[in-house]
Computed example of a mutant assay.
Amino acid sequence: MGTHDGTRRRASAETPAEQVTTAAGVLAPTIALGAIFLATVLSPTFTWTSEPLSFLGSSGEPTRPLFNYGLILGGLVSLPFAARLVGTARNRLESVGGGAFALTGVAMALVGGFPMGTEWHFPAAVSFYLLLSVSMWCYGGGNLLAGDRRVGATTVGLGLLNLLTWVVYVAVFAPTGLSLALPEIVGALALGGWTTATAFRLF
């Protein structure tokens, strides 16, 4: 009971600035995922089984501006929400998770800022997917410590889903030549869904 009452009290006491930073948690994944899916539709050559998602932002592709700027903007918009996560943290682990989420947003922006084919694209992409899981494990662990067992377990599970998807891909599907797009979108959807759901909880 205490957790739900506390959430309602925080929501009712939110200032306009806090409401804006919370809304960023809905806007950021909408921008990033919207740009990704729209780019897959508009690309004349992309297929889910043969090309990684970053192909959509590579040199010569007509979807390059849409894909790259979508990731950059989505990553930057996620930063105010990261500040909101830290500001509403109930313990140190939730605060660390919010900080890791900020780094995840920065990594997302760097994936768009350093498109496929450039020197820093691979480190940025790897950092994004690693930080995705780390931020969920930390924030979800903080949820568990605060008594939010269902939410915490779901958050930790989504971070684990991202990791296991990559392990299965590398062990089973990479040797077949299947593209990175499928494990990439699993992680992106996990992050986007969690960010949106968490923002609504904070509202």
Rank of each mutant, 00 (worst) to 15 (best):
V168N: 03
G177I: 00
G157Q: 06
G70S: 12
G97H: 09
S78K: 05
L110S: 13
W48A: 12
P52G: 14
S133V: 07
R9Y: 12
A24S: 15
R8D: 14
N162F: 02
L164E: 02
V86N: 11
G187F: 05
G97R: 15
A89H: 05
G87S: 09
E51R: 10
A32R: 02
L202M: 14
M136Y: 05
V134M: 03
G70W: 01
V167I: 02
R64H: 06
R92T: 13
W166N: 03
G193P: 01
S133P: 04
S135I: 10
L42T: 11
V86C: 13
G75T: 05
T63R: 03
Y129L: 13
F200G: 03
F37E: 01
V106F: 04
T198K: 11
F101M: 14
T195R: 02
T40W: 07
T45F: 08
G187L: 07
Q19L: 11
A188I: 06
A199Q: 01
L158N: 06
G177H: 08
L180E: 07
S43D: 15
G141S: 07
L27R: 05
G6K: 06
F128D: 00
L189M: 07
F173N: 01
R150H: 06
M1K: 10
T47S: 15
V151E: 05
A24Y: 04
L103Q: 06
A23Y: 11
L53V: 08
L85D: 09
G105Q: 00
A146E: 12
S43N: 14
M116W: 12
V96W: 09
L110W: 08
G159A: 01
A32T: 06
A181I: 02
D148P: 02
F203G: 14
T3G: 02
A107I: 12
S58F: 11
M1L: 12
L202V: 01
P183Q: 03
G117N: 09
R64A: 10
S54M: 13
L76I: 12
L71C: 00
L145I: 12
S78L: 14
T196V: 15
G142W: 00
T40Y: 07
A100K: 09
G6C: 11
N91Q: 13
A125K: 00
V111K: 02
A23E: 08
